[in-house]
């Protein structure tokens, strides 16, 4: 379960050293876009050493690997042998990529006697959006992650504060993720000094149905966590509903502050309580 994910470039030792300190639900160690071609080898080595030797790791570790079609992918996935990686983030996901990754990982797992590797799909092309329902049901997937910047590049459009240009893509990611019981993750907000912009962007994504948001700077995490966490009012409400549902277990339906409470509402309340516990809010 995530609210926030933080990108850390794989070739930045000081960020790696503090990766466990940041208030994020998962750290994404990036071997792809944040790392130049000259640095690919160094970054991979640095992340490998960090995972092997560090005694204080982030709560969840995600590794963004290079494209399955690149010469780096085979080396990147060898870091799975550290058994410290919770998810691989697969860039430019589409139907064909999912298929190729599945084949490579099946083979890798078999040869290295590893359990099934969980994936997060980074959807950042028009093709990826169009084919989303074909790969979202893959059992390896734990989340769908919208990459808004690359998608805008693919569409040859500008990113704007209104987010109108990614409204359709956000909706596709959300519907497909929720339909498959996995987490929709929103694209990062790239203006790292614009606190109000980040809040607005996060609230907009949450209203649509996003359950988490990625960040490109640790200073963004507090707002993201706040927006994507249940509020104290929601938690108080959920506590009341769960308590009353237990007290009224024989009748199934009951009233709370003049409103009818039935099974879907009780399930919603239980999800809120579950989230609050997971995120350490209660």
């Amino acid at each position: 379960m995530f609210r926030s994910l933080l990108f850390i470039p794989g070739n930045n030792p000081s960020m790696l050293q503090n990766a466990d300190v940041f208030l994020t639900d998962a750290v994404i160690f990036d071997l792809e876009d944040a790392v130049s071609i000259k640095e690919k080898h160094n970054a991979r080595n640095l992340v490998k050493n960090y995972l092997q030797t560090s005694t204080v790791l982030p709560k969840q570790v995600v590794l963004r690997v290079n494209s399955v079609d690149s010469i780096y992918f085979g080396e990147d996935i060898k870091l799975l042998k550290t058994k410290k990686i919770d998810y691989l983030l697969i860039p430019k996901m589409n139907k064909e990529t999912m298929h190729k990754v599945d084949i490579v990982l099946n083979d890798f797992e078999r040869k290295n006697n590893l359990e099934q590797i969980k994936l997060i799909a980074l959807i950042e092309t028009a093709q990826g959006i169009n084919e989303i329902d074909y790969f979202a049901e893959n059992k390896r997937l734990s989340a769908l992650f919208l990459g808004g910047e690359d998608l805008a590049n693919d569409l040859e459009i500008k990113r704007t504060d209104s987010n109108n240009e990614i409204h359709y893509a956000r909706s596709r990611v959300i519907f497909s993720a929720v339909a498959n019981g996995i987490i929709p993750i929103d694209t990062p907000y790239t203006d790292i000094n614009n606190v109000e912009g980040l809040r607005k962007d996060s609230e907009q994504a949450k209203e649509l149905g996003m359950k988490a948001k990625a960040s490109i700077h640790p200073n963004q995490l507090e707002i993201i966590n706040e927006v994507f966490s249940p509020s104290m009012d929601e938690i108080d409400w959920a506590r009341d509903i769960v308590r009353l549902s237990k007290e009224n277990s024989d009748i199934g339906v009951f009233q709370y502050k003049g409103k009818m409470i039935d099974k879907p509402i009780i399930e919603k309340a239980e999800k809120i309580i579950n989230k609050a516990k997971q995120f350490g809010i209660m």
């Binding site: 503090n18 300190v21 940041f22 208030l23 700077h217 640790p218 200073n219």
Partner: peptide
Amino acid sequence: TNDPIGLK
């Protein structure tokens, strides 16, 4: 400071 560790 803009350093996330310093801010924390």
